[in-house]
């Protein structure tokens, strides 16, 4: 029975051995196995092909497969390391590992920087920050005048852009986060420590013994 199950899961594109993934991430082997249960659920919610499509990601986040959101798009793009439009199991586990409570803060800081560097220039630019603020306001049905938005962006830039060149580089971002640690709050998911309880894998064999 164990062998049949093993053969079955290894046919799924992008499947990687839990031992390999555990070795590269903050997860244990049993946590990776539990994540596979979550992954199976997410990757078969619309198209049953063992891959998480954008619509499936949106469905899981917003309970609606058609809800477009700038930040969800950015997260999806960062998870989709191969840039082939879908999230494979290995990509899912490696990316989620950034959000593990035991993962180094430096990894979380870097991930957040890449998340907010919308145009991959190596900087968070003023226009990008404004675009994100506007997207958040739209998502929240909040209406602020352009002057107020400009003031919020200006104030943040005056605090973060230490060399005053109009963009936030990695070093400035690190310093800004050190002064405002709450900015990384959403980079840690306490759930990941209890993932084996939330998604027991019910695997009767151990991959380690293979």
């Amino acid at each position: 029975m164990g062998c049949l199950f093993t053969k079955h899961i290894k046919q799924i594109p992008g499947y990687e051995e839990p031992t390999v993934l555990a070795g590269e991430t903050s997860f244990t082997v049993s946590e990776v196995e539990a994540l596979y249960e979550l992954f199976k659920k997410l990757s078969s919610s619309i198209i049953v092909d063992g891959l998480i499509h954008k619509e499936e990601f949106q469905l899981a986040l917003f309970k609606n497969s058609n809800t477009r959101n700038l930040f969800a798009d950015r997260i999806f793009d960062l998870f989709d390391v191969k840039r082939n439009g879908v999230i494979e199991f290995g990509e899912f586990v490696r990316s989620l590992s950034v959000f593990h409570p035991n993962t180094a803060i430096s990894e979380k800081i870097e991930f957040a920087f890449r998340l907010y560097d919308l145009r991959h220039t190596g900087f968070i630019e003023r226009e990008e920050l404004k675009e994100m603020v506007l997207a958040l306001l739209k998502e929240s049905d909040l209406c602020l005048s352009d002057d107020v938005v400009e003031t919020i962006v200006d104030k943040t830039f005056s605090e973060a852009d230490l060399n005053g060149d109009g963009k936030i580089d990695r070093e400035e971002w690190k310093e800004f986060v050190a002064r405002n640690p709450s900015l990384l709050k959403n980079m840690t998911l306490p759930y990941l420590k209890d993932i084996t309880i939330a998604f027991p894998s019910f695997v009767l064999y151990s991959e380690v013994e293979d």
């Binding site: 986040l61 930040f71 998340l115 920050l129 998502e139 003031t151 900015l183 959403n186 998911l189």
Partner: peptide, 25 residues
């Protein structure tokens, strides 16, 4: 007061960044 908000604090409240919802059954 909105003008005192840190733009990144504001952004970090986005539902699109709340991956905790992935774990909801």
């Amino acid at each position: 007061r909105p003008v005192m908000m840190n733009a990144f604090e504001l952004i970090s409240t986005s539902q699109g960044l709340n991956l905790g919802t992935l774990f909801e059954k």
